[in-house]
Amino acid sequence: MTTTLTEFKLVPWQQLPTMPIYMDQLLQFVNQRLAPLGLPAVTKTMVNSYVKQHFFSRPVNRQYQRNQIVAVLVVTILKQDFSLNTISRAILAIRDSRLIEKRYVEFAMAFEQAIQAQPVLVSSADKTTQVIQFAAQTVAYHLLTRETLA
């Protein structure tokens, strides 16, 4: 059964791996979850590049934690419309805030609402939330446009 774009859901935080996983498992997990979006597959080279660009910390014993998995998911989605430099600034701000779960949930909600053509409420009180919502909407609308034109 094929999932249409409008049915796509990001992995809920609670369903992300809680135990560390190796690179091959990370790639399989991310690529499987993002396949319905029709994005290019994530490769080992890409993940290593993200580490070198400090999108997230180096894996410990070659194993990736939940926060690193989230970073790969979000960077993969965002790089469809944003430069890695722009993404890096956003990722570093989120990482430094230590609110990774909260920010991932905000991103997932805004992305899914935009894909389902539901209005996304933009919070004016928190600039980071605004940025997350605008970025998620940008990519969602791009993917919807591409699917509609196909």
Rank of each mutant, 00 (worst) to 15 (best):
N85E: 15
N67W: 01
P59V: 03
K44G: 07
V72D: 00
S49M: 10
I77R: 05
V75E: 00
V72H: 02
A93H: 14
R58S: 12
K44T: 14
D96F: 08
V74Q: 00
N85H: 13
F56P: 01
F82G: 05
T86W: 10
L78N: 01
I94Q: 05
S88M: 11
L78K: 02
R95A: 12
V75M: 03
R89A: 14
V60N: 12
Q65F: 11
N61H: 13
A90K: 05
Q65H: 13
T43F: 08
A90Q: 11
Y50P: 01
I91L: 11
N48L: 09
L92T: 12
K52Q: 13
S88I: 05
D96H: 13
D96N: 15
N48T: 08
A71S: 15
L78S: 00
Q65W: 07
K52I: 06
T43I: 07
Y64E: 02
D96T: 09
P59H: 03
S83H: 13
A71F: 07
D81E: 11
F82H: 08
D81C: 14
V75I: 15
H54Q: 13
L92M: 12
Q68W: 02
Q63Y: 03
Q63I: 03
A93C: 12
N48P: 08
Y64Q: 06
R66V: 08
V74C: 03
L92P: 00
I77Q: 02
F55E: 01
N61L: 09
V51L: 06
N67K: 12
S88R: 15
I69Q: 03
M46T: 06
Q68H: 09
K79A: 02
L78D: 02
A93R: 13
R58E: 14
V47K: 02
S57R: 10
L84T: 07
L78C: 09
R89Q: 14
V75K: 00
L92I: 14
K79I: 08
S49L: 11
K79R: 15
Q80I: 07
I77M: 07
L78F: 05
I91M: 15
Y50R: 04
Y64S: 03
M46V: 07
I69D: 01
Q65K: 09
Y64H: 08
A71K: 01
T86D: 15
V47P: 00
V72F: 03
Q63M: 07
Q65M: 11
Q53C: 02
K52G: 04
T86E: 14
D96G: 12
H54I: 05
I91Q: 07
A90S: 13
D81F: 11
V74T: 10
Q53Y: 10
M46H: 00
Y50N: 02
M46Q: 08
N48K: 11
P59I: 04
Y64N: 01
I91D: 02
T45N: 09
T86G: 10
L92G: 04
V51N: 04
A90L: 15
I69V: 15
V60F: 10
V72L: 05
R89M: 12
V47M: 00
P59D: 04
V70M: 09
Q80V: 05
Y50W: 09
A93M: 14
F82A: 04
T45M: 06
N48A: 09
N85C: 10
V51Y: 06
T86Q: 14
S83V: 12
L73H: 10
N85G: 14
D96C: 08
Y64A: 02
R58A: 13
H54P: 00
I69K: 02
R58Y: 05
K44F: 10
P59S: 06
A93P: 10
F82W: 08
A71G: 07
V74A: 01
V70H: 00
I77V: 14
